[in-house]
Amino acid sequence: MEQRIAVLVSAVIGTLVIALFAIVARSARSTGSADDIAAAAARWRRTTFWGLVVLFVPAIAYSLTKTPYGSEVTAASVVVQAKGHQWAWEVAPDTVRAGQPVEIRVAAADVNHGFAVYDTNDRLITQTQAMPGYTNVIRHTFAAPGTYRIRCLEYCGLGHHTMVTQLTVTAAQ
């Protein structure tokens, strides 16, 4: 969902900006009054500025309700301990149930790692950093059963790309 939004917004705005630059590039051979153009540009600048502000304020406000910090806290959470080592994950237990709130406590034994959860379609669904001296907590409820991959997303040395393990999600009871 978030990936689609990012692609769509980038593609639409990127295309508009490229089109605008292309139009101006084509216009360069002709001549016009510099003063008139400067006045039009000032109006365009004001419109763009306030247009973006009007767009940004609700976008920021809404998106900040969706942060992963401390969400979905419930007493019924199953706790999973995850620790990154150069270069392997230690995850216990490695099986949870679908529909059950899970609290994954992520730590690191040596250097920084990135604990990233990929769903059964190999899409990244959530992540946090695994840091020496800290425990970062992911709270997540897996919707569907299957085999979820855990990959390291913070560069940690020679075996970084081999830091892959699995989390099994069984069907809800």
């Binding site: 978030e2 990936q3 939004i5 990012a6 917004v9 980038s10 705005i13 990127g14 900006v17 490229i18 976008a59 920021i60 998106s63 900040l64 969706k66 942060t67 992963p68 910090y69 990135g114 990233a116 899409r123 990244l124 669904i125 959530t126 992540q127 997303l153 913070e154």
Partner: peptide, 20 residues
Amino acid sequence: VGVVPAVLDGTIAINRVMHN
């Protein structure tokens, strides 16, 4: 143009699935 995907990545909710 480059600013656009950068700003999106700077959104916490999107960064969760785009970071690194």
